[in-house]
Amino acid sequence: MDLRIFTEPQQGATYDTLLTVAKATEDLGFDAFFRSDHYLRMGSSDGLPGPTDAWITLAGLARETRRIRLGTLMTAGTFRLPGVLAIQVAQVDQMSGGRVELGLGAGWFEEEHKAYGIPFPKEKFDRLEEQLAIVTGLWGTEVGATFTHDGTYYQLVDSPALPKPAQAKVPVLIGGHGAKRTPRLAARYADEFNIPFASVEDSERQFGRVRAAAEQAGRRGDDLVYSNALVVCVGRDEAEIKQRAAAIGRDVDDLRANGLAGSPAEVVDKIGRYGAIGSSRIYLQVLDLDDLDHLELISAQVQSQL
């Protein structure tokens, strides 16, 4: 089971804070550092000092780290034109020596689009399908050949399809709870399918849909990596668990039911339940980015048992 650190910087984090967490992620033996792609805080957080851009952040971290994978859960398709996104991700992959992964979603948070003047189209999912075709098509075009796409929303004519990523294949992540279109898109384009904030039972059901869609598309169901994203809140005792839950404004009972919360032994047991239904990777959503002791505890007493 791979454990990855997943951050939500729109809630309030500077680049220096993210760099500190990314370096701790590397030093403590976690597999990867991922971040959300949002420009507006959610809930009661004041969001200070303001948002950071996902791919600018990852470009900086690419030069400041050496081992960990770097990526997004999920880049919002509404934020970037697909040709530009393909260039950005390829460049950051080169900067990292081939450690980048692209999680790409349709975009959903209308308020942040209004706040920063970003169009919020109705046909987001249809656009996402074209974006996936374009990004993967540009990367898959041989050097010296050109790429053309005549779609409903995007047209590319004789693109040189450059630059190329350092990796022969940048892993593409697709995720969500949709019962039909999401599994179909994952079957066609994804290397990894991620389901966020879902129970073991709901995860098993959705993984089954994706496996079935992959087989219908001519792939083996196990060609994809299956993963979960869950809020994490671990403590050495009940007082520490409650303290960490209070720091992120969450209820302990809710976190135990819907996330990974409790003692290290409780969390290891629950991760095992996800592993039993086919999940091989957990994105630990860390909401208090100043609590590095939390990461040290997870590394020493949770990750060490996996």
Rank of each mutant, 00 (worst) to 15 (best):
A257S: 14
V84D: 15
V232M: 00
K124Y: 05
R181I: 01
A300K: 12
D253W: 03
L61T: 09
A187R: 01
V84P: 04
R4K: 14
A115K: 14
A265F: 10
G98N: 05
A217T: 03
Y226T: 00
V302T: 00
E296W: 07
K23N: 09
E296Y: 08
R250P: 14
E240Y: 02
T25V: 08
R236H: 10
A161D: 05
F79G: 01
R273W: 03
S44H: 12
T136E: 15
L128R: 08
L81C: 11
L297T: 06
S159D: 10
L306A: 08
D293W: 02
H149A: 05
I87N: 13
I68T: 04
L18Y: 02
R220M: 11
M74F: 11
P163A: 14
A76V: 01
P171Q: 10
G262V: 03
N258P: 09
N194F: 05
F125C: 06
N258W: 04
E238W: 10
L287K: 09
V200A: 04
F109I: 08
Q216Y: 00
H149Y: 15
R205V: 09
S199N: 11
L3P: 03
F30P: 00
F125R: 11
A54K: 00
Y15C: 04
E111M: 12
H149W: 15
Y154D: 03
H113C: 15
I5Q: 00
L185P: 10
V302D: 06
V92P: 01
L102M: 11
A265K: 12
E204K: 14
E110K: 15
R69M: 05
V225N: 04
D37H: 07
R219S: 04
Q167K: 04
V286D: 01
G275C: 06
K169I: 12
G105L: 06
D253V: 09
